[in-house]
Amino acid sequence: MKHIIPKHLSAPTRRWIKQILADFDLESFHFRLLTKAGEAWDRSEQARELLAKEGITTPDRYGVAKTHPAIAIERDSRLAFARLLRELALDAAAPDSRPPRTPDYGARR
């Protein structure tokens, strides 16, 4: 099946998706999950870059330091990426993600 990689994804993410598509035969619903994982990765990187530039705190209207809103964006996007990757259950390495789920995930030994 031919999948069209969305152009709004960053170049490194599009290359990563191309590599996954070369290594795995994905159904359309898997491809959608993979695309969402790529979007989550890109969003977390955008937030990370913003935080590197602006810092992890920002002044509120009274001048008191508060947590930068991009902290939550980065955290939520990283979690979404890891969960989507785990849901895909691919045996593929990805930065900052947990290993994919296995059939015995959560089983007691």
Results as ranks from 00 to 15, higher is better:
residue 22 A to V: 02
residue 60 D to I: 03
residue 81 F to Y: 14
residue 35 T to H: 12
residue 95 P to Q: 12
residue 66 K to P: 00
residue 71 I to T: 11
residue 18 K to D: 15
residue 69 P to M: 08
residue 49 E to V: 05
residue 18 K to P: 11
residue 2 K to S: 10
residue 16 W to Q: 14
residue 42 D to A: 12
residue 26 L to Q: 06
residue 103 P to D: 10
residue 7 K to M: 04
residue 26 L to R: 01
residue 14 R to E: 08
residue 67 T to Q: 12
residue 41 W to L: 08
residue 16 W to T: 11
residue 71 I to C: 13
residue 41 W to M: 04
residue 40 A to V: 02
residue 68 H to P: 07
residue 27 E to L: 06
residue 36 K to W: 07
residue 3 H to P: 02
residue 105 Y to C: 06
residue 80 A to I: 02
residue 48 R to A: 14
residue 14 R to K: 11
residue 108 R to V: 05
residue 98 R to G: 05
residue 17 I to T: 03
residue 55 G to F: 02
residue 102 T to H: 05
residue 5 I to A: 14
residue 50 L to R: 15
residue 74 E to S: 00
residue 40 A to C: 04
residue 24 F to M: 01
residue 105 Y to R: 10
residue 26 L to Y: 02
residue 57 T to F: 01
residue 105 Y to S: 12
residue 82 A to M: 08
residue 59 P to H: 08
residue 102 T to M: 14
residue 62 Y to T: 09
residue 45 E to S: 14
residue 97 S to G: 12
residue 1 M to D: 06
residue 25 D to S: 10
residue 13 T to F: 05
residue 73 I to D: 07
residue 90 L to W: 03
residue 14 R to M: 09
residue 7 K to W: 01
residue 100 P to G: 06
residue 16 W to G: 09
residue 70 A to G: 02
residue 107 A to L: 13
residue 78 R to M: 08
residue 76 D to T: 02
residue 108 R to N: 07
residue 62 Y to N: 13
residue 28 S to N: 09
residue 92 A to V: 04
residue 100 P to L: 08
residue 60 D to C: 06
residue 100 P to E: 07
residue 85 L to D: 09
residue 104 D to E: 14
residue 93 A to M: 07
residue 86 R to I: 07
residue 62 Y to C: 02
residue 53 K to I: 06
residue 48 R to P: 00
residue 88 L to Q: 03
residue 36 K to T: 04
residue 2 K to E: 14
residue 9 L to M: 05
residue 41 W to K: 06
residue 55 G to D: 05
residue 38 G to D: 05
residue 50 L to I: 15
residue 43 R to Q: 11
